[in-house]
């Protein structure tokens, strides 16, 4: 074995001119700063998990208090509440220890339904016009305006409902029919508020349908309307369904319009011109000011919140499923 070979093999060779002193280290070098930064960034991302867990934990724990606590009223009488009571009774009067959730849920469904009656046809109509009919220039003008509509704070919509829509309804239908605070006016305005969301999501779905489908349809002699309704719309259906479901979820969770314009009393009657507490409206109007901790009123906020959370979460997940299916087809 020559002298040279020995030199390259030994770990610490004597000085050799023009050559690296020791073989290059090819393993990853430890960089503590990089690792620390990556760990920090991971924590930032994981914070969202913590948030979700905290939401579920807080809502769950305080709701559980309702069924495990004993509430003692002013006269010294002890009240307990069972889970069954939420669905069994038809009255929502936490201060009287009656917690039937039905009035709140029915008002929420009614207001959402009214909002959907406005938002779905108008939103879908706008989306179809923007994606199938409008020129590039019209789109350039209309889309930012719709964004403005989407950017107006909901409390401003509440003001609008109470100041414009309610008087309008009262003038049209008579003051004795329409109460000052009513679900119809709040629902209508909520529909206007959700319209841009439906329009932009549906338009995304419609625009994603390949051009070749439209051209094939036109080539067979279909009019633009027939192409839109019979070719493009079915092709974009899951995307549009996703938009509709997200819209419902938004309507269910909308608070300020309800708190301002829909009034504040539990009302099971399905008359949209009467005032009624929606779930969100209840939470908002009862917690303004100084709500005492650990009363049934306080805990009931969390129970209603839990229901609201689960409802919107379910709707959002469902919508995501539709979007995923839609993506799988065209992307």
């Amino acid at each position: 074995m020559s002298q040279e070979a020995i030199i390259t093999r030994t770990a610490r060779p004597a000085l050799v001119f023009g050559r690296p002193q020791h073989p290059p280290v090819l393993t990853k070098r430890a960089r503590p700063t990089e690792t620390a930064i990556q760990a920090f960034l991971f924590l930032c991302g994981a914070l969202s998990i913590v948030t979700t867990i905290t939401i579920v934990f807080v809502l769950g724990r305080e709701s559980l208090h309702i069924v495990t606590s004993k509430y003692i009223d002013a006269s010294g009488q002890v009240h307990t509440i069972k889970v069954w009571d939420f669905f069994n009774t038809l009255q929502w009067q936490p201060h009287r220890y009656k917690v039937g959730i039905a009035p709140l849920v029915s008002a929420t469904m009614m207001s959402s339904a009214i909002a959907m009656l406005v938002a779905l046809p108008l939103g879908l109509g706008s989306a179809i016009y923007l994606s199938e009919y409008a020129s590039a220039k019209t789109r350039q003008i209309v889309k930012p305006v719709l964004e403005v509509l989407a950017g107006v704070p909901t409390v401003v919509y509440g003001f609008f409902a109470l100041q414009f829509v309610t008087p309008l309804l009262q003038d049209l239908l008579g003051h004795e029919t329409v109460e000052i605070f009513n679900v119809a006016s709040a629902g209508l305005v909520m529909g206007i508020m959700i319209l841009p969301l439906v329009a932009s999501m549906s338009e995304d779905a419609l625009s994603a349908v390949p051009r070749s489908l439209r051209e094939a349809s036109h080539g067979l002699g279909a009019t633009r309307l027939e192409t839109t309704l019979q070719i493009v719309l079915p092709a974009a259906l899951s995307g549009i369904a996703a938009a509709f479901i997200i819209a419902i979820s938004r309507a269910v969770g909308e608070t300020m319009i309800m708190a301002i314009a829909a009034g504040a009393r539990p009302n099971l009657a399905l008359n949209p011109f009467e005032s009624a507490w929606t779930m969100t409206g209840y939470i908002a109007s009862i917690s303004g000011g100084d709500l005492a901790f650990d009363t049934l009123d306080y805990n009931s906020i969390f129970a209603v919140g839990l229901l609201l959370f689960l409802l919107t979460l379910g709707l959002n997940l469902l919508s995501r499923q539709f979007v995923a299916r839609f993506r799988a087809v065209y992307e």
């Binding site: 905290t54 807080v58 969770g253 608070t255 969100t280 917690s287 919140g305 609201l308 959370f309 919107t312």
Partner: peptide, 29 residues
């Protein structure tokens, strides 16, 4: 990582009033 991503997307859809309840229970109390 998938859970984090899905979770963030879902959090974006949670009604703002739920965050209010969270703030009341955690930050205020």
């Amino acid at each position: 990582n998938r859970i984090i991503q899905v979770n963030i997307n879902n959090l974006a859809g949670v009604p703002s009033i739920i965050y209010g309840i969270l703030g009341l229970a955690i930050f205020v109390r």
